[in-house]
Amino acid sequence: MELTDSVWEIIKTNSNVLDGKVWYGVKSTKIFCKPSCPSRIPNKSNVLLFTNPDDPVKCGFRPCKRCQPINEVVSDEIWVAEINHILENYYDQNLTLAELAILAHGSISHLRHVYQSKTGISPSEKLMQIRMDKARILLLNSNRSISNIGNDVGIPNNSYFIKIFKKIYGITPHQYRAKRPN
């Protein structure tokens, strides 16, 4: 089905006119919803339409936790996997817990609670792990400046980037880079 202006308007206004007839998937989050879903309006270029609720699942999308487009509750395990997917794809942005909750289609407090109970760490801690791992890879495989690498992984404050890196790895980014084989 084609994303016409009239269908897009239904999604933008959260109308229930097409509920049960059309589902939309968001490519950037791999979540699919009913047109009436009250979650944040996605970028139109990231939207795929489906006329059968089984098709988005076959394409790797998971049902929205908020609107439950196939009238099934999404398990916490699947939701945590989706949160991890979002963290892996948005680590380089200013990703607050509020923004993460919007992208994962859940509330802030529920997201924090479920994530912590299933993983043993907070979403913020996981985000920092991802950022530091990406920074470590960039330090070993590029000649970008330390401040540029910090910025590339979503930590534009160079002092803070160095402080966190040293806390996790026990040495500064400069010292870490110096250890790489030539």
Rank of each mutant, 00 (worst) to 15 (best):
2 E>V: 10
3 L>R: 03
4 T>F: 02
4 T>S: 15
5 D>M: 07
8 W>H: 12
9 E>D: 14
11 I>Y: 03
12 K>Y: 06
12 K>M: 08
14 N>V: 01
15 S>V: 07
15 S>G: 10
17 V>L: 13
17 V>I: 13
23 W>E: 09
26 V>M: 01
28 S>C: 03
34 K>R: 15
34 K>F: 13
36 S>I: 11
37 C>Y: 11
38 P>E: 06
40 R>H: 09
42 P>V: 02
43 N>H: 12
44 K>R: 15
46 N>R: 01
46 N>M: 02
46 N>S: 12
47 V>R: 00
49 L>P: 09
51 T>V: 11
54 D>I: 00
57 V>L: 15
58 K>D: 05
58 K>N: 05
64 C>I: 10
65 K>M: 10
66 R>T: 11
67 C>S: 13
68 Q>E: 15
69 P>V: 08
71 N>A: 11
71 N>V: 02
71 N>P: 02
72 E>R: 12
72 E>H: 06
72 E>V: 13
72 E>S: 08
73 V>F: 04
74 V>S: 09
75 S>E: 09
78 I>R: 01
79 W>Y: 07
80 V>M: 08
80 V>A: 08
81 A>R: 09
81 A>K: 12
82 E>C: 08
88 E>T: 07
90 Y>E: 07
92 D>Y: 14
93 Q>T: 14
94 N>M: 02
95 L>Y: 01
95 L>P: 03
95 L>H: 00
96 T>C: 04
96 T>Q: 06
103 L>Q: 07
106 G>E: 08
107 S>W: 03
108 I>K: 15
110 H>N: 13
113 H>Q: 10
116 Q>R: 08
117 S>A: 07
118 K>C: 07
121 I>M: 12
122 S>E: 04
122 S>H: 02
124 S>C: 00
124 S>F: 02
125 E>L: 06
131 R>Y: 07
131 R>M: 05
134 K>E: 14
139 L>E: 02
140 L>E: 13
144 R>W: 10
144 R>Q: 12
146 I>N: 04
147 S>I: 15
149 I>Q: 06
149 I>A: 11
151 N>Q: 10
152 D>T: 11
152 D>C: 09
154 G>T: 04
154 G>Q: 05
156 P>R: 05
157 N>P: 00
158 N>C: 11
158 N>V: 10
159 S>V: 05
159 S>G: 07
160 Y>T: 15
161 F>S: 05
162 I>Y: 00
162 I>R: 09
162 I>F: 01
162 I>W: 00
165 F>P: 09
166 K>H: 03
166 K>E: 13
166 K>R: 13
167 K>L: 03
172 T>R: 01
174 H>L: 06
175 Q>F: 05
176 Y>S: 06
176 Y>D: 08
178 A>E: 14
180 R>K: 15
182 N>C: 04
